[in-house]
Computed example of a mutant assay.
Amino acid sequence: MNDRMMKAGILSGAMTALLLTAAPARATEGGGSAYPHGAEGWMTGMLPPEGTYLLNYSTYNSADRLNDGDGEQVPVDFQVEAFANTVRFVHVTDKKILGGTYAFQVLVPLVDVSVDMRERRDHRAGLGDIVVDPFILGWHFDKLHIAAGVDIILPTGRYNKDALANIGRNYVTFEPAVAITYHDPKGPELSAKLMYDMSTRNKATDYQSGNEFHVDFAAGWNFPKSSLGVAGYYNRQTTDDRQGGMVVGDGNRGTAFAIGPTVKVQAGKVPIMLTWQHEVVARNRSQGDKLWIKAIFSLGGGQ
């Protein structure tokens, strides 16, 4: 397997894609999180060699229930389907800072979301919220790899405060991230990307979503031309949602845990990852399933 492409799982990153309603009180805010949980898995802490890379994420998300703060289903008809394709450009330089390699990235999502809820149906499609990270550092220690950065999720997607489905969130989110990978090319792999989201206020609704801690993870075994394992995510909101300076309801603190099988194969020089994730725990949010297909392409520019 081409070592250059094997290392293209890379760093901290985020894309804004699936903007789902999380609970009736949060319907106008798009609900859920600014980050699409579960986007990263294999090799997420491995910054690739110097050069330019294109990563393509395609995802399908479906949910047919809303849960309250105890994880019990809210008695309301609900169905959401979301498709997204995100293109992520990463450039890794030859510069070293604090012993780490300097890189930067931008992510551009195209989103299609449909929501049925309480005899209402809404559909939106188009450009989602673009993500930029102008400062990423990556370190390599034999089989251990670490990457860190701060993603900035920008309100570029279309937003309407009266809509049930939105493809933009109408506020900025700052997301510090640290990704760690233990990678043995002929043995085990453990990867985790830890993030903390801090969102600004939505000026259209005077609503501010609470801060969130979340982690994407993967664990598996690497074979010569493929890898098998499990992948998922854990999300916990750490502060209350507020509107007009007041706590909304019980704070709408969401929690989620998802897990499922994942496989990585090599198609020529292009690594392709396929992952299915089922949410086994969901509180103050929607509950459903996600399917991810991720491919990594080297655009050259390095040694």
Rank of each mutant, 00 (worst) to 15 (best):
V263C: 06
S227L: 09
I272Q: 07
T262G: 14
V230S: 11
A219C: 07
L274D: 07
G244I: 00
K290W: 04
P271V: 04
P271H: 11
V280Q: 12
S227N: 07
T275V: 00
K264Y: 00
Y234G: 13
Y233R: 11
F217G: 14
K269T: 11
N222G: 13
Q237A: 12
K264C: 05
A219D: 05
W276I: 12
A282E: 00
V230C: 05
A258F: 01
D250Y: 01
N252C: 09
W221I: 10
M273L: 14
H278D: 14
F297D: 08
F257L: 14
D216H: 09
T275M: 06
G232F: 01
A218F: 03
F217H: 10
P224E: 13
Q243F: 04
V280C: 10
V270S: 08
N284Y: 01
A295R: 04
D240Y: 10
K225N: 15
F223E: 10
G249M: 03
G244E: 05
T239E: 11
D241Y: 04
T275F: 03
G251V: 04
N284P: 03
D289Y: 01
A295N: 11
I259S: 08
V263L: 12
A219S: 10
I272S: 09
F297M: 10
N252I: 02
D250E: 08
S298K: 08
W276E: 12
D250L: 02
T238N: 11
G260W: 00
K290Y: 08
V247K: 15
G249S: 08
P224D: 14
G249W: 02
S227G: 12
V215G: 11
R253G: 11
K269W: 07
R236F: 03
A282M: 06
A258G: 15
